[in-house]
Amino acid sequence: MSTTDDDTLPGIPNVGKADLDAMVENERPDPREELADVEADTDLGVAMAEDAQRVARGELTGDQYWEKYDEAAADEFGEAYQETPNPAVDAGDQTVSTGTAESLSCAVGSMDTVAAESAQVEGEEPDGGIGAGDEKWGMVIDLQKCVGCDSCTVACKSENRTPPGVSYNVVMEEEHGEFPNVTRTNVPRPCMQCDNPPCVQVCPVSATYKMDDGVVNIDYDRCIGCRYCIIACPYGARYFDFGENYDDEVDEAGELTSPEYGVDRGPREEGKSPIGNVRKCSFCTHRLERGEEPACVETCVGDARNMGDLENPDSDVAQMADSSRAFQLKEDEGTDPNVYYLK
């Protein structure tokens, strides 16, 4: 993007660097105005901010900066300052000398260690780990609203980073009747998270099991890849990870993986789980744990997919699942899915 370029493209405004800088300056909030809204000392705040910029430019060292402001900050913020770890102090990436770090009156230890400690103290970790929530997760899919766009399938693939040949969600297209009386139904199919899951029943090593919140989990560290569960699933919802990648389509396609069932496994590598394991939809357990809806529910253009607690009678999904329009796939199998459909 050269600023001296005269032959501008049609429809693209011809703006130079100076114009852009002016625009940024125009948008920049006035520091004094901003800091006036908070209780803390405005002068101190502005001075610290300006010196921080000097540190960034290399005109001032981190040590000098913190020696200059440590006392003032401690006076101004008191206990809150002393209990908060200083971002300049960190085991891996420390920007001030050890001497300075130890002389500071704010909390010692890196951000990470302090964060871990405070989490333990506050008991933020749920008692039973992943899937131990009080909800019983259920999904209701309104077939009248589904337009068959397959956005759910795409959102699922991108959220769960599933390899070629693995698609936790598919949209089955059914045509009924004969011309001219033809109807077409699109039936999205995630894992049904059955109450009586045949897959769990057949697993020889108990690698797949039902969690308290109703989701059927797969322990990738235990699965031996015998594929008996794929055979047993009446919904075809399970897939084997053959180790393929989208390397031809995207560079470093295997670098990013999804923290399925709350476990971050790092980049995809040959011979490392989940390659050689069986995989399936987890209702985006990792998202549910963060208080988010599954990717397919969030993305659905027609708002056809709903997620919620089936055991809470006031929840939307419980009411929809109770309606006369509601049905489950293959009800006579006795699997009792937690995915309901509305006719």
Binding site: C203, P204, V205, R222, C223, I224, S273
Partner: peptide, 21 residues
């Protein structure tokens, strides 16, 4: 087995309802 290295797992973990176990 998808994971040949885990062939001994069925002797460590079991599932009473699994014919394979």
């Amino acid at each position: 087995l998808g994971r040949m290295d885990r062939m001994y797992f069925p002797f460590i973990w079991r599932q009473l309802t699994s014919a394979l176990s």
